[in-house]
């Protein structure tokens, strides 16, 4: 296992939370500014949440045009592990590293709450070997409505889906209007994963409403 870079763009806000949670998960990590990012120094990358470039144009669209993300794309093509959380997920989609699009929530509101997530795929670096089928962690976003023109394809790529505590996915548990309740997708190979929920906010007992540390189960994927 090598080091993991947590890349900070102007407007990124969750880099320290992610860094602390990664340490908690046993992942060797450091925060690096997007301009100083040297891909040869790292085996994995996390793009944390926040509001890169003020969400101008569309959330993630400007960061997707940076040299740093071009380098992340190269790393992804080499099979290195890439995780995008929330705004990071939006960046990966905008950059074409993941399929689909993240549109404004159907109710046009910023949604901030704890949700249950059904684990659909266990062939990604994030979910491999995970024993639980339902996870509990928070979401906080205004543009999280996952869209893909091909529903069958979306089913193949989906990693997590919004559900109830028993893992049942229905529209009642869909916070933003996502296709098939999708909260997270990966590429075919499973080395690039994007997710709207925040695992770093479900990594410390004291900070979780029911002491959930399910986020660590996922982040440990960067240590495996």
């Amino acid at each position: 296992m090598g080091r993991t870079a947590v890349i900070k763009f102007p407007g990124t806000t969750c880099e320290v939370d992610v860094y602390r949670a990664l340490l908690e998960a046993g992942v060797e990590a450091e925060v690096v500014k997007y301009r100083d990012f040297d891909p040869d120094k790292y085996d994995a990358v996390v793009l944390p949440g926040g509001f890169s470039y003020g969400d101008y144009l569309r959330a993630g669209a400007i960061a997707a045009n940076t040299e740093a993300v071009r380098l992340v794309k190269e790393m992804a093509n080499e099979g290195k592990r890439v995780l995008g959380i929330c705004n990071g997920f939006q960046i990966l989609v905008e950059a074409g590293l993941l399929e689909g699009a993240l549109l404004p929530n159907l109710n046009l509101r910023f949604v901030s709450k704890w949700v249950y997530l059904r684990v659909l795929r266990k062939d990604t670096f994030l979910t491999e070997g995970i024993e639980k089928d339902v996870l509990y962690m928070p979401i906080a976003h205004a543009e999280g409505r996952y869209y893909h023109p091909d529903e069958e394809r979306a089913k193949r790529l989906a990693v997590l889906a919004y559900s109830n505590d028993r893992g049942e996915t229905s529209q009642d548990h869909n916070p933003n209007g996502s296709l098939l309740n999708i909260a997270s997708v990966a590429n075919e190979e499973g080395n690039v994963v994007g997710m709207m929920p925040h695992p770093e906010r479900a990594s410390f007992k004291l900070l979780s409403p029911n002491s959930s540390t399910d986020g660590l189960l996922l982040l440990r994927g960067l240590a495996r």
């Binding site: 569309r58 669209a61 905008e94 699009a101 869209y147």
Partner: peptide, 9 residues
């Protein structure tokens, strides 16, 4: 080329 729009949507 700079994805000012997303042709998917």
């Amino acid at each position: 080329e700079r994805k000012l729009y997303n042709p998917l949507v």
